[in-house]
């Protein structure tokens, strides 16, 4: 009975995190983006600096009619948002935020593989949406999504493999247990590549060609309305949370910090993830969108070689330090 309670509690916590953190990131994006552009952003909803803007948005989305285009493939069209969103919930389950058993939803032996595999599944949602909408722009968006995933999955995997090599384990908790501070400079190239590839996989600017509004309206999500559209948006922000959490865990040492006892490890994790989320927003505000071919070229001619070089470096250092 105690086990059941424990599992239920963990699931509940992860679910609450899943529902709140993306909103926090979204609200931060509203505000940070506004101030970076010399604006104030939302100021009314909720009273204090528009803190409830996204709640209001959610209410608005829930009120809207759920339209399915006449020519669409009805069932797949309706299923797609769930396929896009659920994987991130699953991934969140495996990200440890503090030391010990208590600070992770579920310890998974092959954690790195689990998170990367399940994150890749989320893209299927965009593909299904793009195809099932019976809309040319949606189809183009789906195509771009697929092309982007194929290009960026590889560097992401390779850099994650580099960390796994360094730690000698593919378990996320194991990687953090083995972490030393000098891993950060050692794996910095890998960290950058992982982060950039993750951005591309989430279709965040400057890699948002699949939803490029000035070219293809809103890509795969063009035909969506109401709650299903909101689910896609939630998936994007949940993706940011997951990506920042993963980068923190894999490359920045998660709960390790210059000071802070065991009890405060989770603060470090959240702090690092928050800084990364800020960087995600910062990049969005600063850079214009790449072109589709530039994106592919960027991945295949820069990120993949860089990640291979990182793996080579990791291997060399690993052999050298394990010599004596």
């Amino acid at each position: 009975m105690n086990d059941v309670l424990d599992v239920a509690l963990r699931l509940l916590v992860v679910f609450v995190v899943f529902l709140t953190f993306p909103l926090i990131v979204g609200q931060t994006e509203h505000k940070v983006m506004a101030h970076m552009q010399g604006r104030l952003g939302p100021m009314y909803a909720g009273g204090f600096h528009g803190w409830a803007q996204l709640v209001a948005d959610g209410v608005k989305f829930a009120q809207k009619e759920d339209v399915v285009p006449a020519g669409a493939d009805r069932r797949i069209f309706q299923l797609a948002p769930a396929v896009a969103l659920l994987p991130y919930l699953l991934v969140l389950l495996a990200i440890p935020i503090g030391p010990g058993e208590g600070a992770v939803g579920q310890v998974i032996d092959a954690g790195v593989f689990f998170v990367l595999a399940v994150m890749g599944v989320g893209v299927l949602g965009s593909l299904m949406a793009g195809w099932a909408s019976a809309n040319k722009f949606s189809l183009l968006g789906g195509l771009r999504t697929a092309a982007q995933l194929l290009a960026y999955e590889l560097p992401m995997l390779l850099t994650a493999a580099s960390v796994a090599m360094a730690a000698g384990t593919v378990s996320l908790v194991g990687i953090l247990d083995a972490f030393e501070w000098w891993w950060v400079p050692w794996q910095i190239t890998g960290a950058l590549v992982f982060f950039i590839a993750g951005l591309a996989e989430l279709q965040r600017p400057p890699f948002d060609m699949p939803v490029a509004d000035s070219e293809i309206i809103f890509g795969a999500y063009t035909e969506y309305t109401g709650l299903r559209f909101a689910l896609f948006l939630l998936a994007e922000y949940a993706g940011i949370v997951v990506l920042c959490g993963l980068t923190t865990v894999l490359f920045l040492g998660g709960w390790h910090g210059p000071w802070g006892a065991d009890g405060l490890g989770w603060v470090w994790t959240l702090l690092k993830a928050a800084v990364l989320a800020f960087v995600v927003i910062w990049l969005r505000v600063t850079y214009p969108r790449l072109r589709e071919d530039q994106l592919q070229k960027f991945s295949w001619t820069l990120l993949v070689p860089l990640s291979l070089a990182q793996i080579a470096l990791t291997g060399i250092v690993k052999v050298v330090i394990s010599q004596p």
């Binding site: 593989f113 990367l116 595999a117 399940v118 890749g120 599944v121 893209v123 299927l124 593909l127 195809w131 789906g142 195509l143 697929a146 092309a147 995933l149 194929l150 999955e153 995997l157």
Partner: peptide, 14 residues
């Protein structure tokens, strides 16, 4: 999941 669902099927759909 990583190879087949995440990559092969995506390639197929592409």
């Amino acid at each position: 999941v990583l190879i087949y669902v995440g990559s092969v099927v995506v390639l197929l759909l592409f």
